[in-house]
């Protein structure tokens, strides 16, 4: 999956599930402080991303290190590559 496709799909999840306007979805946006998600919203986000990309991330420790939107793009990219192997 191309990098831009991942960006578009992740942004789509934020727009559909959280109704966040597209202009706020810049790679450096901090998920907690800029976008205003909390720990419970993160659970909803993980569920939506799993569904969208067909990956499993709920019990993945690396989720804890995610801070920005760009971290999510990169993490999904890594998961996709791992799934391909």
């Amino acid at each position: 999956m191309a990098e831009q496709d991942i960006v578009n799909l992740v942004n789509g999840v934020f727009m559909e599930s959280f109704e966040i306007p597209g202009e706020k979805l810049v790679p450096e946006a901090k998920i907690f402080t800029d976008l205003g998600l909390d720990s419970l919203d993160i659970v909803d986000l993980v569920v939506a991303l799993q569904k969208k990309f067909g990956v499993t991330m709920r019990d993945d420790e690396r989720v804890r290190a995610i801070r920005t939107l760009e971290d999510i793009y990169n993490f999904i990219q890594i998961l996709k590559q791992e799934n391909r192997k």
Binding site: S17, F18, E19, G36, L37, L40, D41, D44
Partner: peptide
């Protein structure tokens, strides 16, 4: 609304 949109 969903919880996120409601809180905001």
């Amino acid at each position: 609304m969903n919880p996120y949109t409601l809180k905001n």
